[in-house]
């Protein structure tokens, strides 16, 4: 749903999402890096488990919460991608 049209002269940044190897361009936010790698849906909603993705991209909506390097509830649209980041999807809590 999003692609990167320009010649990516900026260095490529390897990271993982759900254990899967991905690449981003330096300077991208985590949310943009994930979308550029084809990962739109970032989490399940906490009540119904419905799929959710980044909505505002400016830190307001908190829809893009992901786990980054073991830190839960990080706003993917605010954090810059770094080499080797391990990003995970957040699921609805078990038993609910």
């Amino acid at each position: 749903m999003f692609h990167q049209p320009r010649d990516p002269r900026s260095p490529s940044v390897p990271f993982t999402f759900e254990g899967q190897a991905c690449e981003a361009t330096a300077g991208q936010t985590v949310a943009a890096a994930l979308m550029g790698a084809g990962h739109l849906t970032l989490r399940e909603s906490i009540v119904s488990g419905s799929p959710r993705a980044a909505y505002c991209m400016m830190g307001v909506c908190f829809e893009c919460l992901v786990e980054i390097d073991g830190h839960p509830n990080q706003q993917a649209c605010m954090v810059l991608i770094r080499e080797g980041m391990q990003i995970k999807r957040q699921s609805r809590p078990l038993g609910e």
């Binding site: 749903m1 999003f2 692609h3 990167q4 049209p5 320009r6 990516p8 361009t25 300077g27 991208q28 936010t29 943009a32 890096a33 979308m35 550029g36 739109l40 849906t41 909603s45 419905s50 799929p51 959710r52 993705a53 980044a54 909505y55 505002c56 991209m57 400016m58 909506c61 829809e63 649209c77």
Partner: peptide, 25 residues
Amino acid sequence: WTLPGVMACTAADVLYKSSGLLPSG
């Protein structure tokens, strides 16, 4: 409006300016 693929319009602008991404499709 909670479906993935529905976004605030400035989100597209932010994605372009800060990360060089453009919508496909």
